[in-house]
Structures are given as structure tokens and as C-alpha cells.
Design a protein around this nucleic acid. Structure first.
Lengths: 121, 121, 121, 121
DNA sequence: GTGGTCTAGACCACG
DNA sequence: GTGGTCTAGACCACG
């Protein structure tokens, strides 16, 4: 899996890494149990400080997306926590985006189609 | 319209204000042409510096959501710009949220129902 | 001559009035010696405070575009001061606009054509 | 690149900074990809508050002239947005300046020569 | 070390 | 009375 960093984004680099790995797991590009690159490997690959990559991995671990052990490094978790709900932060963000979409004049059907496409891939 | 600031959020205060006003316009709580509170009034009401409120208003102005004149203060814009599309930042955020929703085990139908509720109100 | 005020513009109202009268004189819509509406007439016509209109007239007088006397009110000056040069403020503004035009990728020929059109009318 | 502030100008300081940087980019004095001074460096150099300089940089960022990242500070953008047109505000300003130039008795040829000189450097 | 955020307080032009 | 501008000074996250 290729991780692309936009160094000019407002989103911190560790968060960009975290987000792309979550999206990789969600899309199936990263399979359950699959090994992630080591912190050192990934940091040299994308030309970023190891601390930054490490921070991304720690967040993913805290959130329950990956597991780490000293022997095998980091892996995608096999039995993901299925809360069947989205957290409050995401809910607030979603409300904001829906509000802005509405004001842009887009129809709810077009908006839902966009969601379906995102869900599909 | 009541604006609530979460001082522990990592979303900057001026952005929280901006977001809540956009959501207020979108929901209809703030009507087209309606007068917003003055910078001073809002800043004392929510206990925030005038500069911070002013920054929120300037962003809303730049984005085309409100208009300001020196006599009457700020108003919700009458003829909103209808791009009929969502910008790239919101699209990326939406992709991230959809990915996380999928991983939580929520069904696409439940997710779409949540969108409909948000759209409705 | 019809004066249109944009109450949401960053340009102060008295300056909008001043600018439109100057442009009216330049285009020939207002002829040399022609009578301008009285401060009172213009202020009620466009729904603006008399002080604001008065300020515009005073600037036009100071700049030498109009003359006022107690009998006849304000008139467009017959013998305009022909400095055959543009002042430093306008020069600086022009430099800024030229710089931005260049950066926009427009060609100097298209830019000069635009100038010619503006000059023509 | 040297930035000079006129504290008596009615153009706000942050706008003077913004304008001079845009003109620097346009003239080539600031090259694509070139590093701008840090907010702190520039603010101490010209004796202006960091907030004011920061505001100038944020406008330049919003307008797409520069990019900022947290590591390296601000840089001139490599791939500039080429709209190949000038915005309405600049068009209105240009009309006003052309009107005043005409009234000054300057010839259109001299005016166009002035534009060419500004364009050239 | 960098930009980003925020405050308290002040002054200003406009209308 | 309104928004706009500016300062001095502080703290923060990021890397």
C-alpha cells in the first residue's frame, strides 16, 4: 500500500498516515492480519521522521485498528471492534458537511449517490 | 440562535463559530437576510475575544455565506452561491468518515438514514 | 446619471459616489459645466445620509473635478486640470493590478485590449 | 526581498505586505518554490506585530500564491493557478484608474507604454 | 523553530 | 454603534 503525504495540508502528517491506513483497511487493500511496514521502513519510504510514523501507529493501536507485538511488528487487527455506530466527532463533522452540501444546492439523492460510491470502493 | 463553544475541542474557536453559523443557515434557523449578532454582542455573550469572533465573520464573508456593511453589521446572504458540488476538502473528510463507518459495522442503509435525518432538520 | 451604491462593498459609500461621478465625467455622460444634483436631492434619491453625499462632493471639489457656488450648486468644471500624468496612488494600484494580471496568465495584448475597451467608452 | 511599510497609507499593513509579495512573485524577484522569511523574522525586520504578518501570509495562502508547511515555513507556490482573467474588483479599480487617466489628459498611447513598462519589470 | 490561535485592550473610519 | 486594524504578549501542536 502506498501512502502519499501532502506536506502543505492542514491535516498533520501523522493524521494523514493514520487516515490512509484506516481507509486502506476499510477498502480491503489492507487485509485483516496483514503485516504493516515497520515504522523505520515506512518513515524512510515517505521521507518522514520516525516519531511521526510512530505516532500514527500508536493512534491506530489505541483506536483498535492494529495490534503490535515485539516479534512481528504491527498487523491489521483480526477481530475488529464493531461498535455499529459512528463517534461524536465524526457525527459533528458529518453534520457540518451535510449542511454545507445542502447550501451548495446539491440534491440529497446526488449526495447519497456520492456516499454509495465511496462506500462501494 | 445560541452558539456553544467547546473550549476543549481541537477545532479552533473561530471555526466552531463559523461552523455553527453555517449549520444555522442550512437548517433555516438563520433565515436569508437575517441579521447576525454584532461582533461585540456575540463575543460578550459567549465570553470570547472580539478578534476571534471577527475572524469567524470574515471567513463567512469570504466564503459568501454572509455580508457585512458598516451600518447594519452582518446579515445572512440572500442569494447564496449554489456551486451544486462539495469541495475537495469535504470530499476527503467524507471518504474518511465513510471508511470509519464501514469498519464500525454499521450498514449502508443505517448510514444513509443518518444522513437523511441530518439533511431533514 | 444614475448612481448605484453597493452597501456591502469594502469601498466607503462616499468614495463610491465620488468614483462614479468621476467616471461619468470621463465617459462624457456628465458634460463640462453640467449641473450635478443637489446634495439633498442625491441623498434622498439613493437613500443615503446627506453627510455622506456632501463628503463625496467636497472630495470632488478638492480634486478639481467640480466647482460649487452658493447660487448654482455643484457643476462639472469647465477647464479641467490636465496634469497629463497619474498620481502615485493610482500608479501603485496599477502596478499591483498589472502584477496580478501577469500572474493570472493573461497576455499583455489581452490586457491592453481590455484597457482600450475601457478607454473607449 | 525588502518590504517597505508606509504607516501613513490607508492601505492596511497586512495588505501592503500581501501586495508587495505578490508584486515580488510577479516580477520574478521571488522565484517559484523560494522560501519566504518566517513570520517572526519578517515581523521583527519591519517592526510589525507577528499577527499582522501572519494575516498577510494567510491571505496569500488562501489566494493560492504561497504554501505553508509547519517544518519549512512559507514558500512561493510552484504551480500557480492560471485563471487567465482578472477579478471583478480589479476590473472596477482598473476602470476607475483609466477614467482618471483620461481626464488627466494623458494619451492612451502613453498610458499603454506605462503598462508595458510595469509589465516588463 | 515553525505557523496557528487567542486574549485584553486600544484606536480608527464610516455613517 | 459598527466592523476593521493593530499591538504585546502568551501558549500550543507539529516535527
Amino acid at each position: 500500500m502506498i501512502i502519499k503525504i501532502n506536506e502543505y495540508s492542514d491535516i498533520p502528517i501523522y493524521m494523514q498516515i493514520r487516515n490512509q491506513i484506516v481507509m486502506g483497511i476499510s477498502s480491503g487493500e489492507l487485509e485483516a492480519g496483514e503485516q504493516l511496514p515497520t515504522v523505520r521502513a515506512l518513515s524512510t519510504e515517505i521521507g518522514i521522521n520516525t516519531m511521526t510514523v510512530s505516532k500514527a501507529y500508536q493512534i491506530l493501536k489505541t483506536e483498535g485498528y492494529i495490534l503490535t507485538d515485539r516479534k512481528n511488528g504491527a498487523r491489521v487487527r483480526m477481530e475488529m471492534n464493531r461498535s455499529k455506530s459512528i463517534n461524536n466527532e465524526n457525527k459533528d463533522e458529518l453534520k457540518r458537511i451535510v449542511s454545507e452540501a445542502k447550501l451548495s444546492g446539491i440534491s440529497i439523492n446526488d449526495f447519497k449517490k456520492m456516499i454509495e460510491e465511496m462506500w462501494g470502493k
